[in-house]
C-alpha cells in the first residue's frame, strides 16, 4: 500500500469503520448500562438547596475542598490535558473542518501555532500523568493493562497530529495517515474501555447526586 492509498484508506473506509464501531459501541454500551434499572427510593425525600443530580454533574468538575492540595498532580495534570484535548479537538482548524464535514456546523478556530503549543502542553501533562501513575503507589496499584493502553491510545493522536503539522520524522502524507489512524483506534477503543467515562461520567454524577439529593445532601 502506498502512502496516498494508506491516507485515502484512513480518510475513507478506515474512518467509516471507526465511526461505525464507535457509534455501535456507544449505543450498545449506553443501553447495556442504563437499562439495568434501579429501585425507586421509598423513603420520604428531604429537599436541600444545591442537591440534585444536575448540580452534581456540574459540581464534580471542580475539586472538593482540600482535595487539590492532597493530589495536585492528578487535578492540575488532569485539567490541563482534558482542557488541552478539548481545545485541540474542538478549536483546531482541521478538526473543525472535519466536524463541519461530519455534521455541517462550524465555528471560529484558533491559530495553528496556538494549537501546536496546546498540543505540546497537553502531551507534557499526559507524560506527567503517566509518571504519576508509575510513581504513586495507589495509582500503580490500581493500574491494569487497560490503563497503560488507553493512555497510549489517547496520547498517540496528539503526538502524530503534532508531528504531522510540524513535519517531523515522516513525510506529511504518512504522518497525517498515521494521525487519522490513531484517532480511529481511539474511536474504536473508546466505547469498550475506561475511556467510555467520557459518556458515563454524566450518568454516574447524576446518579450519585440524585441518590444523595434524596437525603438532602448536596454531593
Amino acid at each position: 500500500m502506498t502512502d496516498l492509498q494508506f491516507l485515502t484508506w484512513t480518510r475513507g473506509p478506515g474512518l467509516d469503520l471507526a465511526v461505525a464501531v464507535f457509534l455501535l459501541g456507544v449505543l450498545w454500551r449506553l443501553i447495556e448500562i442504563y437499562t439495568l434499572g434501579r429501585k425507586k427510593d421509598l423513603a420520604a425525600p428531604r429537599h436541600a438547596p444545591g442537591a440534585s443530580g444536575l448540580h452534581t454533574v456540574f459540581r464534580r468538575s471542580l475539586p472538593p475542598p482540600g482535595m487539590l492540595k492532597r493530589s495536585p498532580v492528578s487535578y492540575i495534570g488532569g485539567y490541563v490535558f482534558h482542557i488541552g484535548l478539548a481545545i485541540i479537538v474542538f478549536l483546531g482548524a482541521p478538526h473543525v473542518l472535519l466536524i463541519k464535514n461530519l455534521v455541517g456546523v462550524s465555528w471560529p478556530t484558533l491559530p495553528s501555532q496556538f494549537i501546536g503549543l496546546t498540543a505540546v502542553v497537553t502531551m507534557a501533562a499526559m507524560v506527567l500523568m503517566l509518571a504519576d501513575r508509575i510513581n504513586k503507589p495507589v495509582k500503580r496499584f490500581l493500574s491494569t493493562f487497560e490503563d497503560w493502553f488507553t493512555w497510549a491510545v489517547t496520547f498517540l493522536p496528539v503526538l502524530t497530529g503534532w508531528m504531522a503539522t510540524q513535519h517531523l520524522l515522516l513525510p506529511y502524507t504518512q504522518m497525517l495517515a498515521l494521525h487519522i489512524l490513531s484517532a480511529e483506534i481511539l474511536l474504536v477503543v473508546l466505547p469498550f474501555s475506561k475511556l467510555f467515562h467520557g459518556f458515563t461520567l454524566f450518568g454516574s454524577r447524576w446518579y450519585n447526586g440524585r441518590v444523595n439529593a434524596h437525603k438532602g445532601v448536596p454531593v
Binding site: R11, G12, D16, V19, P94, L97, L98, N101, L102, I180
Partner: peptide
C-alpha cells in the same frame, strides 16, 4: 486532506 471522505 484532513477532512473525511465519507465517514457517515
Amino acid at each position: 486532506l484532513s477532512a473525511p471522505a465519507d465517514p457517515l
